[in-house]
Design a protein around this nucleic acid. Sequence first.
RNA 1: GGGUUCAUAGCUCAGCAUGGAUAGAGCGAUUGCUUGCGGAGCAAUAGGUCGGGGGUUCGAAUCCCUUUGGGCCCGCCA
Length: 623
Amino acid sequence: MVFLKLLENIRCKTDEILDAKNYGSVQFSVESAKPGFGDITCNVPFLLSKQLKKSPQEISAELSKMYNFDDMLEIKNVQSHASGYLNFNIDYTKFNDLVISSSLQENYGALEFGNNEKIVVEHTSVNPNKALHVGHIRNIILGDVVSKILKKANYNVKVLNYVDDSGLQVADIIVGFTELGFSQESPDNQKFDHYCGDTVYVKTTEKYESDKELEGKRHEILKQIEDSSSEVSKIAQTITRKVLDAQLKTVWNLGVFYDCLNFESQIIHSKLWETIFEKLKSDNQIKYEDEGDNAGCWVIPAEGEDDKILVRSNGVATYIAKDIPYAAWKLGLVQDPFHYKIHSTQKNSQTLYETTLEGDNKLNFSGSKVITVIDNRQIRLQKIVSGLMAKFKEEGAYTHLGYESVTLSADTVKSLGLSVDGESAQMSGRKGLYVNADTVLETLTKRVYDESKSRNENLSESELQNIANIVAVGTIRYEMIKPDLDKIITFDLKNSLRLEGDTCSYIQYSYARASRILEKTDVKPNFDSGCELLSSEYEKNLIKKIAMFDVHVNDSVNNLSPKVIAKYSYELAVTFSSFYEHVKVLASETTELLNARLCLVVSFQKTLKASLGLLGIDAPERM
RNA sequence: GGGUUCAUAGCUCAGCAUGGAUAGAGCGAUUGCUUGCGGAGCAAUAGGUCGGGGGUUCGAAUCCCUUUGGGCCCGCCA
């Protein structure tokens, strides 16, 4: 901890002063100041103003005299500003070495407060009947980045992917295979998930329009899928496994990995639902309706809203009855009915497990806290689930991390050969109205490859491929992370190919430039001393930005907000770019200054790499 | 109809949680900067009644109420 510690120390000092003055306790803030107002600022004079019946300026002037920084050499002084703020100035001759040496440490920016507590993050959870589209990508990337940020804050994170292999969407493609005679092999080596989604799913649901008898079959097929002894169930299992494997290839290409896959069909067969149903009944969390519209149903009472039906009058459980046992299982509230077997070894060589009802391999994928990443259209359902979980465990143990959906711009819809009213359209798998994730990644990779090749004549084919991949993946990830969670992303194919301005490639470019500096000198930076020589505005700004990494990690963990790190990465890159332009490192006047600046460049690189790492983005040496 | 969410520069968005100093970026527009560590860059100019109205406060883009306009959700479907 560097900057957080500094803020904390100033806070303590301020508290002591308030104590000595008998001013009581006040909830004041100590935070990084805007440019032109010192380095760190405190608003306590404003908050005391009323109580003391003095102007903030007077209080500020009075308090500023009471600080003593003899035991805190990184702070040069405190100034009472005419506005009333207390503005603290950093002594960079002391601060530089501290920041630069800290940034070299292995886990720079890491925080302790997770205490290695086990936390489960579930994301992706796409029906295995189609390929992943750009909307799913937002979910996957958010989930992945949240899990990385939690790890940075010392949580023991387990990442799960729920595979809904027994829903109507799966039944729809099975209808296509068994009733409409679609081949179970994809033509022309087409990726199997694309074939199922783009052809079988779209064509089958289209046929429902004209063939109502066929539409009736889907429920029949669904029933058979749930009966594990049936022939249809075996076909469904083969098909969904193949689709899932194809989906996982896409996910791995984006640098996302899981610990365990949970199959819905197994949750159904595990009788977990029956267990939790009894528990809900005995705990009086649900009630049986004797009369009214819902007569004969078991319902979850909801405050201020209509009760949610849990079990129909015919005894069949509703959709939400699948989410509840799963949520309870994730929180470890029920005895684990599953065993675990290896599904595969992922691209990063991490083992991926899956649930099974046979065997004897016991592992534990539950956590004392659970974060479920699902888009905001499911917020109502998720509220009911988290409300129930709060009855069994403390409030907040189950968190729904929601976000707005991804829509397609009118231009992009037109490029798919479809029409649209208005400026954007919701994606729809049935209508074929979506852009596949693989397509975006391929298009972007090609674009970056061409760009990189035109700039680097001497790079080998494999180096160019590698750069194209790193930048393309980074670009997709960055665009998904950067906007606020409750902002709709309107995806536009053309716009997503931008590589200038506030983009991932701008950030990565700053890293590559830093590498060039280090490459062009024989001097090996010596970090032992001398960094106090860095005294220009550009150098100090960069050091301060590097120091503030922990502040932003802290912020992003507390608010489960990935975008904070995206913003920080960009700001860090901007600060470096300005330094790069104005301070010619290799033209430094003295060897001492050259050394100090090289240290700063290395420090910047380490920090940017760590920050991008939290976003799952690689930093290329060249591009 | 009920609920929820969004509205900040021509466009796309930060800032809002925890009220405070001069509301920040990118794109687009205009202009300047490469015999110099990579121009995917830097520097600058223009562009804002923070949707409207009211309130709380010494102080509101930020909190509360209201209103307008958009999105999403609201089945004994999944």
